[in-house]
Amino acid sequence: MTALLFLEQTLNGLQLGVTLFLMAAGLTLVFGIMNMVNLAHGSLYMMGAFFAATFVGWTGSFFLALPLAVAATFVLGLAVETLALRTLYGRDHLDQVLATFGLILFFNELVKIVWGPVSIFMDVPKALSGRVELIPGAPYPVYRLAVLAVGLAVAAGLWWLIARTRTGMLIRAGASNREMVGALGVDIKRLYTLVFALGAALAALAGVMAGPIYVVEIGMGDSMLIKTFVVIVIGGIGSIRGAFVAALIVGTVDTFGRVLPAQFGLPAAIAEMAIYILMAAVLFWKPAGLFGGRA
């Protein structure tokens, strides 16, 4: 493998990693704070992408469509949380799995009704459509660099929100001890709704940005959801820092898993399996994940 290819794939891996992080950040908070399994997180990713496809059609601008789609999914998150998920927090995990599984079926079918069963191809916005020779001799798509930059910026913003603001303090407190935060007079219900909607918005952002790279289609969130689970398991539930580190690791391993086997004549089966093997290995040594306190 040449150094050029290596650098290019590293960038690809990091870009997948930050997308995974956007998904994982919201999901790990919902897991950590509400102690809730949400299989429908991938549906929010999908809804974000479909909203964006529609808004691009209306406004003609990707840069207008992006915030609109994120905002729409934020509202959708508020609605889903208030109408359906709120009653499930105290229930056992099995109920949550079933109910959110029902939500996936619902959203997949909803998309089929509203947008039709055909996949939608989103164009890369003109301003970001070129390639830049970041690494001499290997022009790299500007759009993918922009995704990487946005992902890193959001990660930094999240760190600031969680570590430096009052809301973040409450979120952290909620993750460590829900009852105590409630007893201290914090409106825990509102905090839950806010955290869920924030997670929805981040998932939508990931979905919108993935739109032009992959394809906007029904069920696009499912495979992302499972990769996100792997990220959270490796990083440790409830840990944003863990999610960030694990997302970059998983993104890189997944990307190289697709390139390396062909280079060394290994069976292609390893490609899709690489991240799961990694997860098994991490779990074997650290059942609570890299940054997790409790299993």
């Binding site: 229930r91 029902g102 079918e109």
Partner: peptide, 15 residues
């Protein structure tokens, strides 16, 4: 579009 009926049925069964 039976799934749009079936999904919420699941939710209700759980609840």
């Amino acid at each position: 579009h039976w799934m749009i009926v079936f999904g919420p049925i699941l939710l209700l069964v759980v609840l």
